[in-house]
Nucleic acid binder design. Structure first.
Lengths: 224, 224
DNA sequence: TACATTTTGTCACTCAGTGACGTATTGACA
DNA sequence: TGTCAATACGTCACTGAGTGACAAAATGTA
């Protein structure tokens, strides 16, 4: 979850470095940090996502141009596309980036836990993240659903998660678990998860998410 | 159209397509059939898909421009976008269009059949369609998988099918079937179906598809 | 025949995305 | 501190998808 409310001080400093040289002392003071370059890149990336999401949520995805995102930060359009391959990536990339966290979560589940249960609990851990800022999650979900190109990328993200979790599940269970079976277990859990999330969205994001998900998982469990 | 000869060429080209050669004469003779216009539009649409898919399969999706599709048919780029909203639609639209056929298939299943079984059989009916031309199906699937924007649209198509089948299942089962449960049953069946299709693709599209799908459905059935 | 409707082509335009090239910034080493 | 290679950025020019506006052509109807 990106922090939209963070201020853009660092980037302002960077933008002014073209004309002034006051960041020289900054370099002198932080001379120990070797990857100053990486830090700049990280903040630039964060600022781009912040401004981009703000504009998208405010005036829509299609009606917002790259120039509008880039202009208040004093960054060129060309540079934007050095950080994000497409306009859509600005919205969905941070979701894809949390894939390893899911795999870690699954790996940390007790080994005696049943496969489906382990995957379900892994996915449930995301529900608590959503719960920390339901309004933002709801707004982002609306953005994803109302923008066709973003909806497609969101589905793609789901596939990435499924593949990663499938691989992790096979790793976890060993050769007893055939690939097709692993795929289906993960797919079922993801189906329940998505269904619950959609129901939550359809109700305006006002009900409790976690019990809804638990209900969905239980439906999968004893449905045949 | 400004040039007469280009107009004649275009019509001749459309009329000479496959099985529509005789339609021109019959409509000209009877003259009572009012939808000559509609017929032209249908053939134009078919020709665009035919040429487009040929080029996409031959030289790739991204490297094929709309002009290349449109040029051999004597149609303008602007007209292309009156038939298809996006370049991607040329590939995926016919898949979305077969949604009602699925719903009909589900509705025609015997009413005493269990929900999951009915949905599974509905999806299995598509396997036989794929079986009529496995090479083409495989090539199309490779196209969908190797082109990110198409992969996204393909996922979107899956969602459309899921929603349509969910609605049909609720209709079929009556108020006994809550929406969340219906979603999950359909989602599970679709998960198994997709997993089987992916395995089939991973094996180079050479194994028999139907038994693979039946195996996938059976895995869902006795997995918990 | 004449007239209304629909379809199409042309033109001009916006915007996403890319390649090439020059410049500015940074990191490491003298 | 100065030098130099590597990296990051800006500018410019370009391709291609997609759209709005308007005129010309084809069709339906009478």
């Amino acid at each position: 979850m990106p922090a939209i409310e963070s201020s853009g001080e660092a980037i302002a400093c960077r933008a002014s470095s073209h004309n002034f040289e006051h960041d020289l002392e900054t370099t002198a003071m932080t001379a120990k940090i070797t990857n100053l370059r990486e830090q700049f890149k990280t903040t630039t990336r964060q600022e781009l996502t912040r401004v981009g999401l703000e504009l998208f949520l405010q005036q829509g995805f299609a009606t917002t141009t790259i120039d509008q995102i880039v202009e208040p930060l004093g960054i060129s359009k060309r540079t934007f596309f050095r950080y994000f391959a497409t306009k859509e990536d600005l919205v969905v990339e941070w979701q894809t980036e949390m894939t390893p966290a899911f795999v870690d979560e699954l790996n940390s589940r007790p080994s005696e836990e049943a496969p489906f249960k382990a995957v379900s609990e892994t996915l449930l851990s995301l529900a608590s993240r959503i719960n920390t800022n339901p309004e933002l999650a709801f707004a982002l979900m609306r953005l994803l659903k109302e923008t066709p190109s973003l909806a497609g990328r969101d589905m793609e993200r789901r596939m990435v998660w499924e593949q990663a979790l499938t691989a992790a599940l096979i790793e976890r269970e060993g050769p007893v678990m055939p690939r097709l079976k692993a795929r289906i277990i993960v797919g079922m859990a993801m189906t329940a998860w998505t269904a619950a999330l959609d129901e939550w969205y359809a109700d305006g994001g006002k009900v409790e998410l976690r019990p809804l998900m638990e209900q969905a998982f239980s439906l999968v469990t004893y449905q045949q």
